[in-house]
């Protein structure tokens, strides 16, 4: 993971998907959000991260060849 300088502006490289995907379903056109499926490729993305005292850019594609666990949670300082 490559380190980046964090200045007054927000870190560059806002979390973004690597593939072009419709992110927000168009409900009026009858689109529904679909859950990703087991047995199918995990959507690729890159995102800024805090890791061991540094700000770094993480890219999921860099971890091909390794087991990966992604853990989403509601927010820092929440209690559970």
């Amino acid at each position: 993971m490559k380190e980046f300088e964090a200045g007054c502006s927000r870190p560059k490289g806002q979390a973004k998907p690597a593939t072009e995907t419709v992110l927000t379903p168009d409900v009026e056109r009858g689109e529904q959000r679909t859950m990703i499926q087991v047995g199918k490729p995990a959507p690729e993305f890159s995102a800024p991260a805090f890791y061991q005292g540094k700000f770094v850019e993480m890219n999921l594609a860099d971890y091909k060849g390794k087991w990966v666990m992604l853990c989403f949670y509601p927010g820092d300082f929440t209690f559970v």
């Binding site: 993971m1 927000r10 870190p11 806002q14 979390a15 973004k16 998907p17 995907t21 992110l23 927000t24 959000r33 679909t34 859950m35 990703i36 959507p43 993305f45 995102a47 800024p48 991260a49 805090f50 890791y51 061991q52 005292g53 770094v56 993480m58 992604l70 989403f72």
Partner: peptide, 21 residues
């Protein structure tokens, strides 16, 4: 000690949308 794994930031929710959560 520091948290042993990288803590990712998804400020616009795009990764969460990609994963449907």
């Amino acid at each position: 000690k520091d948290v042993p794994f990288a803590m990712l930031s998804d400020q616009n929710g795009n990764i969460g949308r990609l994963y449907g959560i």
